[in-house]
């Protein structure tokens, strides 16, 4: 049994200009202990997918479909029931660690309250556990950190604290939404190393949202590529990098700088912009930017299996050889 079963998840926002369809019929599974990467351009619906799982959508947002966590339906769950899942069985960490922490409370208070609330620990016991956890995420002098406030710490330090906070109750699933985007490059690799350690050592499954395909290659077991709120391709990491089957994935891979390319330094960003989510096109959502598009693409392709554990949403039998680079 999968840890998380997402079926036909859609997220829409009602706005004065119309309904924004941020996520459109997404389905995927996540096995216990597995690390799934979620990639896609900005606006492809990665964050809203994660927020929908947590029941944290903005007031004007609505999620439909089904999200089963350990066979328990999360969508439509009462907020009281949700508080028992959040932070205890599913944790989430966000893109901007400094503003994600409450500036008016000490780090210690923010860690301790998770344990006193979910595990009914006394403050003293909770404090000890929190300090232990800070040590586990490699924070020096944890006792001093407990007394400090977020603005006194660096972004990387805050993100470590967010990770520690997410792990306090040993959750089954940790959702990390671009945990390193807001950080310095050197700090990024430290946090990524920490995440890697976690995914190996603990039994916690990780849903890692990122722009960085390098990180995906290093950390994830499987990857899902999203576009316009739909899954374009899903495959084990090795397969995806070795034999991408979808033009969009190919585009993403080509836009990553690589040392082994003949002309390093030239990036081939995908031309054009993602579709307007007020009106998601009927056919293949990528057709406007796809250089292989043809008549059949006016129909929406199915998400079909193309190899072992490898799925894509595209009418092409197989991807033509890439044209010579210019």
């Amino acid at each position: 049994m999968a840890l998380l079963e997402v079926r036909d998840l859609s997220v829409s926002f009602s706005t004065p200009d119309g309904v924004v369809h941020a996520v459109n019929g997404l389905s995927f599974d996540l096995e216990p202990g597995e690390t799934l990467g979620l990639v896609g351009e900005s606006g492809s619906g990665k964050t809203q997918t994660a927020l929908a799982l947590m029941g944290l959508l903005a007031d004007n947002g609505r999620a439909s479909g089904s999200v089963k966590f350990r066979d328990q339906e999360l969508l439509g769950m009462s907020s009281r029931e949700l508080t028992r899942v959040r932070g205890s069985k599913i944790s989430m960490i966000f893109q901007d660690p400094i503003s994600s922490l409450n500036p008016y409370l000490s780090i210690g208070d923010q860690l301790i309250e998770v344990l006193t609330h979910h595990r009914s620990l006394k403050r003293k016991a909770a404090r000890e556990r929190a300090v232990e956890m800070l040590e586990r995420v490699r924070i020096g002098d944890p006792l001093a950190r407990m007394r400090q406030f977020p603005h006194e710490l660096s972004g990387g330090m805050c993100q470590r604290i967010m990770i520690a906070m997410g792990l306090l109750c040993q959750p089954d699933l940790l959702i990390a939404d671009e945990p390193t985007t807001a950080l310095d490059v050197t700090v990024q690799s430290q946090i990524n190393a920490l995440m890697g350690e976690l995914s190996e050592k603990s039994s916690t499954a990780i849903l890692l949202i990122t722009h960085d395909l390098g990180v995906v290659a290093g950390l994830c077991d499987r990857v899902m590529v999203m576009y316009a709120g739909q899954e374009m391709e899903m495959a084990p990491v090795v397969t995806l990098f070795a034999e991408p089957a979808h033009p969009y994935t190919e585009g993403l891979l080509n836009s990553v700088p690589r040392l082994d390319r003949a002309r390093s330094g030239i990036l081939n960003a995908i031309p054009g912009n993602p579709p307007n989510l007020l009106q998601v096109p009927a056919g293949c959502p990528f057709s406007a930017r796809c250089r292989h598009a043809w008549e059949a693409c006016r129909e929406r392709p199915a998400f079909a299996e193309v190899g072992p554990d490898h799925y894509k949403r595209c009418h092409l039998e197989r991807l033509p050889e890439a044209p010579p680079e210019t």
């Binding site: 922490l101 409450n102 008016y104 998770v114 609330h117 979910h118």
Partner: peptide, 26 residues
């Protein structure tokens, strides 16, 4: 609307606790 309130919700704190412990002071 701020991010740290979203974090507090993600931590599974009940709304009442969020209101009094996290939101009231700021």
């Amino acid at each position: 609307r701020s991010s740290f309130i979203r974090t507090a919700r993600a931590k599974g704190l009940p709304e009442k606790e969020i209101l009094f412990n996290h939101a009231l002071k700021p």
